[in-house]
Simulated assay, not measured.
Amino acid sequence: MAAGVAVGRLTEERKAWRKNHPYGFVAKPQSVADGSVNMMVWQCIIPGKAGTDWEGGYYPLTLTFSEDYPSKPPICKFPQGFFHPNVYSSGMVCLSILSESSGWRPAITVKQILVGIQDLLDTPNPASPAQNEAYGFFVKDLAEYKRRVRQQGKRYPPKD
């Protein structure tokens, strides 16, 4: 029964997203080989914010929902090795609103998650480092950190 609640909520979120979503963002359930969709896994794209070192990049993110959604947050992952102080080497995003024990609330929507992650890209939280390399550059060599961010953005150009 729990999966029914999760799928129902995600179906509603998909409808709301189609009607109104931030420019440049993509969020859609994963297509399955048989032509159906898997509502529990969404493929997303987060555009880098204009005027930041992230601008020009369109960063792929996968949201994986459990049968306990919306009681529990989705797992949000960038590609493995994504360069950011608050992204683990596995690609998993470390953000308070995604933490079941601290900031998660069932009212948080997919749109709020994606906008929150976009904000995190340019404003890392040094109090919650998840990746030593990116964190080290962020706190000790900001010029090199920014160079690597811009370089990473080139690996994720807009899709036509």
Rank of each mutant, 00 (worst) to 15 (best):
R14Y: 11
R14E: 10
N20A: 11
N20T: 02
G24Y: 07
G24E: 06
F25C: 09
P29S: 15
P29F: 12
Q30T: 11
S31L: 15
S31R: 15
V32I: 11
A33L: 12
S36C: 08
V37D: 13
V37I: 15
W42L: 08
I46T: 13
G48M: 09
A50E: 15
G51I: 10
D53I: 00
Y58V: 03
Y59R: 08
P60Q: 05
L61E: 01
L61F: 01
F65N: 03
S66P: 01
E67S: 10
D68E: 13
P73L: 04
I75F: 01
I75N: 10
K77Q: 13
F78N: 07
F78Y: 06
P79G: 06
Q80K: 15
Q80G: 09
F82A: 12
H84S: 07
N86A: 06
V87H: 07
Y88M: 00
S89Y: 06
M92K: 12
C94N: 07
I97M: 15
S102C: 00
R105A: 10
A107S: 13
A107C: 11
A107H: 04
I108C: 05
T109C: 07
V110Q: 04
K111E: 14
K111F: 01
I113M: 07
L114Y: 05
V115D: 00
V115E: 05
G116E: 03
G116V: 04
I117K: 06
T123D: 14
